Simulated assay, not measured.
Amino acid sequence: MSEQIPSSATAPQPFGRTVGAEIVRHARQHAHPAVAPRRPAEDAALAALLRARQRSGEGQQWSRRPQEPPTRPAQADVVERLASRIVPPALWTAVEPLIPPAKVRRQGGGRGRVSDRAVFTAIAFVLTSGCAWRHLPATFGVTVPTVHRRFQEWTDTGLWIRLRRIAEEGRFEDADWLRMIVEAAERRGTRATG
């Protein structure tokens, strides 16, 4: 006697149906016992209650936590400490007025401009440490292309020449440090253009 196989078992099922059934079976098998299964009627009732409360304005009272003021990222503190060490406030007050204003983009848009102080700090680090542009640490909060592009812009506009003049006047305590930065910038600038 041969066993007869039901005809439904021999017919191949569509792929999507078998995969979907397998996923459902697996989910039921591995469902966490502490989580109660959701019922469509409860979901519909809860959704109707939420919509009613939102319309009446009550939903505002029990929505999440109240908004806390945004906190500063930890990297901002690191960048400020680096800036105050590499470019002290007295030096920055002498340098800032000499930095050329940003060019206005005719087409508009784009990202916001990175602060001049952050870029000047990164440039001063690269120039005085002797490292390559590509080895600029990410802790400065600026990208290497931005720093190098701004260095080229400032070199083309003659910033380092103007800074050399005020460094030679020596009217502030960090004039020697500025002179070292300017000399390194001039060496890098002539190497890049020559």
Score class of each variant (00 low, 15 high):
residue 3 E to I: 09
residue 10 T to G: 14
residue 20 G to I: 01
residue 21 A to K: 08
residue 126 V to G: 07
residue 71 T to M: 05
residue 37 P to V: 11
residue 89 P to E: 09
residue 129 S to K: 09
residue 114 V to L: 13
residue 106 R to D: 14
residue 35 V to W: 02
residue 142 V to S: 04
residue 13 Q to W: 01
residue 138 A to E: 13
residue 169 E to F: 04
residue 44 A to C: 02
residue 9 A to S: 12
residue 20 G to H: 04
residue 90 A to H: 06
residue 41 A to G: 03
residue 29 Q to N: 09
residue 83 A to H: 01
residue 64 R to F: 06
residue 104 V to F: 03
residue 145 P to N: 01
residue 86 I to R: 07
residue 82 L to P: 06
residue 18 T to R: 10
residue 132 A to G: 07
residue 28 R to Q: 11
residue 95 V to M: 15
residue 53 R to P: 00
residue 115 S to L: 05
residue 115 S to Q: 13
residue 97 P to L: 02
residue 107 Q to N: 12
residue 33 P to Y: 02
residue 161 I to A: 15
residue 50 L to D: 10
residue 43 D to E: 08
residue 157 T to L: 14
residue 46 L to G: 12
residue 76 A to C: 01
residue 155 T to K: 00
residue 81 R to D: 10
residue 194 G to Y: 00
residue 156 D to I: 00
residue 183 E to Q: 08
residue 149 R to M: 08
residue 108 G to F: 07
residue 15 F to L: 13
residue 74 A to V: 02
residue 125 F to G: 11
residue 77 D to V: 00
residue 3 E to N: 13
residue 125 F to L: 11
residue 89 P to Y: 04
residue 117 R to Q: 15
residue 10 T to L: 14
residue 121 T to W: 04
residue 45 A to C: 01
residue 42 E to S: 10
residue 141 G to S: 04
residue 123 I to L: 14
residue 152 Q to D: 14
residue 107 Q to L: 10
residue 69 P to N: 11
residue 18 T to A: 14
residue 85 R to H: 13
residue 157 T to R: 13
residue 115 S to H: 11
residue 161 I to F: 05
residue 32 H to G: 01
residue 54 Q to M: 06
residue 23 I to Q: 09
residue 69 P to T: 09
residue 84 S to I: 02
residue 58 E to H: 09
residue 70 P to W: 00
residue 57 G to F: 02
residue 160 W to K: 03
residue 89 P to V: 04
residue 166 I to W: 04
residue 28 R to F: 05
residue 1 M to N: 13
residue 180 M to S: 13
residue 153 E to N: 08
